[in-house]
Design a protein around this nucleic acid. Sequence first.
DNA 1: CGTTTCAATATTGTATGCAGCTTCGAATTC
DNA 2: GAATTCGAAGCTGCATACAATATTGAAACG
Lengths: 230, 230
Amino acid sequence: MAKRESNVDRVYEALRRMAADFAFKPDQRINESALSEVLGASRTPLREALNRLVAEGFLTFQNNRGFFCRPLTPSYIMDLYEARVAVECEATRLACTRASDEDIAALADYLNRMEPEYESATDPEELLSMDESFHARLAQLSGNSELQRILNNLNGRIRYIRLIDLKRLRDRAGGKAPGDISAHRQIVEGIATRNTEAAVSAMRSHIEKRREEATEAVRIAFSQLYVPDE
Amino acid sequence: MAKRESNVDRVYEALRRMAADFAFKPDQRINESALSEVLGASRTPLREALNRLVAEGFLTFQNNRGFFCRPLTPSYIMDLYEARVAVECEATRLACTRASDEDIAALADYLNRMEPEYESATDPEELLSMDESFHARLAQLSGNSELQRILNNLNGRIRYIRLIDLKRLRDRAGGKAPGDISAHRQIVEGIATRNTEAAVSAMRSHIEKRREEATEAVRIAFSQLYVPDE
DNA sequence: CGTTTCAATATTGTATGCAGCTTCGAATTC
DNA sequence: GAATTCGAAGCTGCATACAATATTGAAACG
């Protein structure tokens, strides 16, 4: 009765996570037979899942050579951040004119409830999940599912770098978690007062602040990915 | 030596075109065996192509029920137009600060060269191709390949409706082609003078003008899709 | 009549096999 | 030694087969 999720879906989810985490190294060739054994499925459903990930930009594909992990370069990451600016700023703009007072209040409330965890969290993974969750909720306020869909895709591909960025900020701040909750508040405040320009520009600078560190984060990413342990 | 394109690629291209044109009716279930015969390939490569199109939002998928054409509703089309606004406005913004004078001049030149064709074209299909081409070139000026990629995807899914929109404008104008070349000029002018706000707002209103007609265009789309002939 | 049941039919999900292309490395040449 | 050739091994591309699931429609029931 509970055959809700197919094999392809399961394989897809696993692969998406692996690709997001760069369990495949940048540009690494993926061996289908080996991978299908690891995932406990034959090559047919595996290749279907791989094709989805190619279409989503997590992997690339070359004829007669198979599937490869996406590359990891500063300019690629900058592009993703810029695309996030495009999507999230427009989502913010739409939320300003479209979201109900109740929905905005709910988001503000979410932020308040999260604050303790936000402040006390030491695990960057956890912190990032909360941050992504906030941005996803905000995108929901736009009422536009395409923007939500695109944002979700961008977030998946940029996640690894953002995680590194958070770790870096934490280490710099001497172990204190760098949850940028005040920037989030500022954005929600702008939406709540229907001050579109304020909200959008707060969102823009919030994202661009991170974008500027992309090059450095990519450098760190490479040193992590290609160093034997830890 | 010329085995550059695989079977999957060929099938994918054919299906993308079919899906874009609503050769599959909205929400229609797709029969794999029948389709694989039409396309001259077995179900294995067919399903790989179908999975790509699901990931790109051209089709949907349900477990154990297979593939379906994407739905066609006013709100879905509005979402696509809004996403276009997000992407193209940010691309315009980036182009303003980033594109070289030469590249901008080349785009202006392209517009000039196109003008005669633009004015004389009677075929909406042709007109739309030129319009898409202009927007794609502009997106190139942003130097951001993610934005280009997203735009290309959105354009594919919205194409059918834009075509109807153009036909409608033409019929209203008594057969004269409604190429909105002056709006394009205005955008390029803004970029050339590095007047970001002017360029972006020209782009925004250019796209939103069309968005407002989405509901009506969808209505017409349905009547076209479900009427026996013509 | 409208509903329900259930077996026949159709369709999808996945494993497997093999042809053809790519890769790798040892032997060969310069 | 470095470059090249070429055959063996490995991998991908695709067709096919069959199991699992969904759909259909006719018969039975209310």
